[in-house]
């Protein structure tokens, strides 16, 4: 059943992905009296246990086991959930030259989930003294975007995110490593913090479709109306 939901989620994101390539490119406009969406993403009940990942190599450095970070729940609040406004073609400015940090740290990806705007670059670093390779796959069909070697410590490799959608990040050298980059068409995407909260600001007044996505729990789309200078609350509770 869960797999079924995942398939639907994947199919939806594929359709959204296809649709997006035909949509107009994002246009920066003056948003002087923008509104805000803020909220908390929660998990109802006991979250599924994160599997214990057994290190098959570099045990001396990585340790024997690491707990997976698929479900990060603190007092019922869910971290690492992507919240993004899907249908804004024009809005606030953003730093096109920003480098989105993405680290190979202690044999895991840090952060586990992040967002980037199409055209921005991911700054992949390796703070471990061992060989990592960062293998990015685009979309539900997991087409290789880049597979880069990171043999040396602390040398940031910048790679442009050219297409919108979910990017899955893996390391062939350490098969347990897993991360995600949500590449959005506009700068209105974020990831929930440790307390499950998020804020998206500078939104031109209007009614929008907001996507809430979690790697294991799938996605929901909610309609939200933003008023000039106002704050709209958007909470969501996932359950198993």
């Amino acid at each position: 059943m869960k797999k079924h939901i995942m398939h639907i989620a994947l199919a939806t994101s594929l359709i959204l992905g296809l649709w997006s390539t035909q949509a107009l490119a994002y246009k920066v406009i003056d948003v002087s009296n923008g509104g805000k969406i803020t909220g908390v993403i929660s998990f109802n009940g006991t979250p599924p246990a994160n599997p214990t990942l057994k290190m098959t190599k570099d045990v001396d450095y990585c340790g024997a086991t690491i707990s997976a970070d698929y479900y990060v729940v603190n007092n019922g609040k869910l971290q690492n959930v992507v919240v993004s406004i899907e249908n804004i073609d024009a809005g606030k400015p953003y730093d096109k030259k920003a480098i989105i940090p993405f680290d190979n740290k202690k044999c895991m990806f840090s952060p586990h989930v992040t967002t980037a705007v199409v055209g921005q670059r991911l700054g992949v670093n390796n703070t471990d003294p061992i060989l990592h390779n960062t293998h990015l796959y685009h979309g539900p069909k997991k087409k290789t975007m880049y597979n880069i070697a990171l043999p040396l410590k602390d040398r940031v490799i910048k790679k442009r995110m050219r297409k919108p959608g979910i990017v899955t990040v893996q390391c062939d050298a350490h098969e347990w490593m897993l991360g995600y980059v949500y590449v959005s068409k506009n700068p209105y995407a974020t990831v929930t913090a440790a307390d499950g909260t998020f804020t998206i600001d500078g939104i031109p007044p209007g009614t929008y479709k907001v996507k809430i996505w979690h790697e294991k729990l799938g996605e929901v789309v909610k309609e939200v109306t933003v008023t000039a200078g106002g704050t709209t609350t958007l909470d969501h509770t996932f359950s198993q």
Partner: peptide, 14 residues
Amino acid sequence: AGLDGGAMPSYSDF
């Protein structure tokens, strides 16, 4: 160039 689809990564950046 690396061997895309396989595990061999590209070393061009380094």
